[in-house]
Amino acid sequence: MDNLIIEGTKQTPSINFNAGSGILEISGRSIPENTFEFFNPVLLWLEAYSQVAGEKTVINVKLEYFNTSSSKYILEIFKRLRSLLNDGKDVNVKWYYEEDDEEMMETGEDYQDVSGLDFEIIPIEE
């Protein structure tokens, strides 16, 4: 299965999903003009990945800001990962936030509550 690599821009996050290692990374800012266009390939990739995923999947989330529609897709990503967990796989979410960014920390906690995934909420020192 191919890895999914999308270069980040000022409006879209960078995506680096490695099917072989099971390490997925999403970072940057997410305010795309067309959220569906950006996230649909990501969700489709995750669907395909769920068929070949190894025992352990780690997703590193390093987002600094995202808009409302992106928040729906991020929730969707976690739901897809949740289904991996339901299949007996190990899924770990590493949610990074800037040390003084209280909002992003609390957002991570909310996603943790709603997704039922194992979250590590990690501050990044400036």
Partner: peptide
């Protein structure tokens, strides 16, 4: 969840 997150990020903005 989306409303909560959206409000919080608006606050950040």
């Amino acid at each position: 969840i989306i409303t909560k997150i959206s409000d919080r990020l608006q606050n950040k903005l």
